[in-house]
C-alpha cells in the first residue's frame, strides 16, 4: 500500500495519539457534539486517538461538585468513542477525599485511564500524594500540568521540579510533565533524572528545537506528543514533532508508541487497547 503523505509537508502521515485535549474551546452544545468536532479535526491530521480531560468552562480551583460535573461531561463525551478517545479524571489536591471518590467512579469503575492535576494546589502538597497513592492501586498515568512562566506562575501552579519530587516518591507510577514546564530549556533538565516522568510537547508556541532538545535531554522513550486542543491548534503542536530533525522511528515513538506503552497495562485491563 502506498504511504500516505501530507500535502505541502511531503512527510508520511504517522499514526498519532494526542495525549492532551479538552472539550473547552470546541464548538458544540453538548459534550457529545464537542467530542465529535474535536475528533473530526484530529482525524484530518492522522490522529487516531485523543485523551480528553476536564470539562467546560475551565475552573482553576474546582470544589468536589464541580469535579464531578466536569468528569461527567468527559464521561458523556467518551460514551460513543471508546475506540478513538480516552479520558483522565480531573482531581484536586485540595479535596483528596472527593478526588479519591472520583477516581473510584471514573477510573476503577469507569473507562478513564489516569488523572489530571491542574493548578488548584502545587503537587508537593500532601493531598497530591494521597491521591497518587490511591490511583496507583488501579494503574493509569498521572498527568500534571507544569509551568515555569517567565511572567510568574499561579500560586497553585506546579513546576517540573515539583513534579520530579513527587514522582520520585512513586517510582512505579508513570507521570506526564504537561507542557514540559513551558520554558522547556529549563523544564527538561528538572525532570531529566526522574525516569518515571515523561515530558509532553503541548501548549506552547512551536519554537524550533524543542522536541530535538527533549530527546537529547530525557531520551526518545520519554517524550510524548500532546496538543492542548481545542485551545491550541492540533496543527501547530503536531508540527513540533513532524518538523523536528529526528528519524522516523523517534517520531513514531513520540507521536504514539511512548504514550501507548505507559497506558498499556490499564488499557489491557479495561479491554481498550
Amino acid at each position: 500500500m502506498a504511504v500516505k503523505r501530507f500535502p505541502f509537508l511531503q512527510h508520511p502521515v504517522l499514526p498519532a495519539w494526542d495525549g492532551h485535549c479538552h472539550l473547552n474551546g470546541c464548538p458544540g452544545r453538548t459534550p457529545t457534539e464537542r467530542m465529535h468536532w474535536l475528533l473530526e479535526h484530529a482525524a484530518r491530521l492522522g490522529i487516531e486517538r485523543v485523551i480528553v480531560f476536564m470539562g467546560y468552562p475551565f475552573v482553576y480551583d474546582p470544589d468536589p461538585a464541580e469535579l464531578t460535573r466536569q468528569n461527567d461531561q468527559v464521561l458523556q463525551a467518551l460514551e460513543h468513542w471508546h475506540d478513538r478517545a480516552l479520558g483522565y479524571c480531573y482531581v484536586s489536591p485540595k479535596y483528596p477525599e472527593a478526588s479519591i471518590r472520583e477516581i473510584d467512579r471514573c477510573v476503577r469503575d469507569g473507562p478513564m485511564v489516569g488523572i489530571k492535576l491542574w493548578v488548584a494546589e502545587r503537587c508537593t502538597s500532601p493531598g497530591t500524594a494521597e491521591i497518587v497513592e490511591h490511583l496507583s492501586r488501579y494503574g493509569g498515568v498521572v498527568f500534571q500540568h507544569t509551568w515555569l512562566k517567565a511572567t510568574g506562575n499561579l500560586p497553585g501552579e506546579s513546576t517540573p521540579e515539583d513534579l520530579a519530587a513527587l514522582a520520585r516518591r512513586f517510582p512505579q507510577v508513570p507521570f506526564i510533565c504537561g507542557h514540559a514546564g513551558g520554558q522547556w530549556r529549563l523544564g527538561l533538565h528538572a525532570v531529566r533524572s526522574t525516569a518515571n516522568v515523561l515530558v509532553e510537547t503541548a501548549g506552547a508556541d512551536p519554537v524550533a528545537g524543542f522536541v530535538e532538545r527533549a530527546v537529547d535531554v530525557v531520551g526518545e522513550h520519554r517524550v510524548v506528543y500532546g496538543s492542548d486542543a481545542g485551545g491550541r491548534s492540533f496543527a501547530s503542536q503536531l508540527g513540533k514533532v513532524y518538523g523536528a530533525r529526528l528519524n522516523m522511528n523517534q517520531k513514531r515513538l513520540i507521536l504514539r508508541e511512548n504514550l501507548r506503552a505507559v497506558l498499556r497495562p490499564i488499557l489491557e485491563a479495561k479491554g481498550l487497547d
Binding site: 501530507f6 505541502f8 512551536p206 524550533a208 491548534s233 496543527a235 508540527g239 518538523g243
Partner: peptide, 18 residues
C-alpha cells in the same frame, strides 16, 4: 515564522481545517 517556529506547524494548519 521560519526558522524560529517549525515550518510544519503552519503548513499543517492548511490541512487541519476543512
Amino acid at each position: 515564522y521560519s526558522p524560529v517556529f517549525y515550518t510544519a506547524s503552519n503548513l499543517l494548519k492548511l490541512i487541519e481545517s476543512p
